[in-house]
Write a protein that binds this DNA or RNA. Structure first.
Lengths: 127, 127
DNA sequence: TGTCATTAGATGACACGTCATATAGATTGA
DNA sequence: TCAATCTATATGACGTGTCATCTAATGACA
């Protein structure tokens, strides 16, 4: 027997899902169309842009729900796209520093505007 | 220049993402471990269980953020797992009715309990 | 009735995420 | 100093989602 409380829970969950998919989808489509990068790529750019320098992969991993291997592959793509560079790190040669390239910084500046705009449009919207 | 309002937006967005990933991940792992189905499979089972009979693919598509083709493949898997059956529909032979098998109904009953429990644990939690 | 457009659903190529594992460097302790 | 262990990151096999397209059935209209 389904309880009323259960229905509320399920509805709350659907709201979260719906907000998430609507927003993520909208951002992803626009970033893809205008800047040729996906949402995950943008979020990494955004984190790296924020941390300026001294940004290790490991630290990034803690600021995103992405898996370590997903992160590694996203960075691969960003690097292939010439938006980010991996700098090997002297005091621990297993680590890598990430740094935006000039192209990366430029693209991030524009994409961030689109990103914030879409967040605003979608998060304030009724579910 | 980054505005304070933007930071709030981005934080709100991260909260949604985090709630979504934490909850979806927890449910998915548990359903996978105990019942050998994923979250999407469960959600379809759950919708079909709710709609009882007269449940067309098309209608399902409107109640989930899944793509039509994703839905088709999820139903494939559920059918292969013997949990659901596709019944062809007399008055429109392009349509299909979906129906839980006995195994499907049994699994859904158990899985729904786990599902609701995990929703409760995760949605009430602080982000 | 015959053609054209539309609709329900399936499918194949492809992209991406995940898990398990590999690799290489760091650290510990005998 | 060597072996064992641990840690940071990369990689390959695999599953699943997406987009574009296909097929078959329906509807509309001349």
């Amino acid at each position: 027997m389904e309880m009323a409380q259960d229905r509320e829970l399920v509805e709350q969950w659907r709201d979260i899902q719906s907000a998430y998919f609507r927003t993520a989808g909208a951002i992803d489509r626009e970033l893809e169309a205008k800047f040729n990068i996906g949402l995950n790529e943008f979020e990494i750019l955004d984190l790296v842009a924020d941390n300026a320098d001294a940004c290790r992969m490991k630290q990034l991993g803690q600021r995103t729900p992405m898996t370590q291997s997903a992160l590694s592959k996203v960075v691969d793509r960003l690097q292939k796209a010439g938006l980010i560079s991996r700098q090997s790190c002297e005091d621990d040669r297993r680590s890598l520093f990430l740094e935006l390239t000039d192209a990366g910084r430029a693209l991030h500046a524009d994409a961030a505007v689109a990103h914030r705009t879409l967040l605003q449009e979608n998060l304030s919207q009724p579910s």
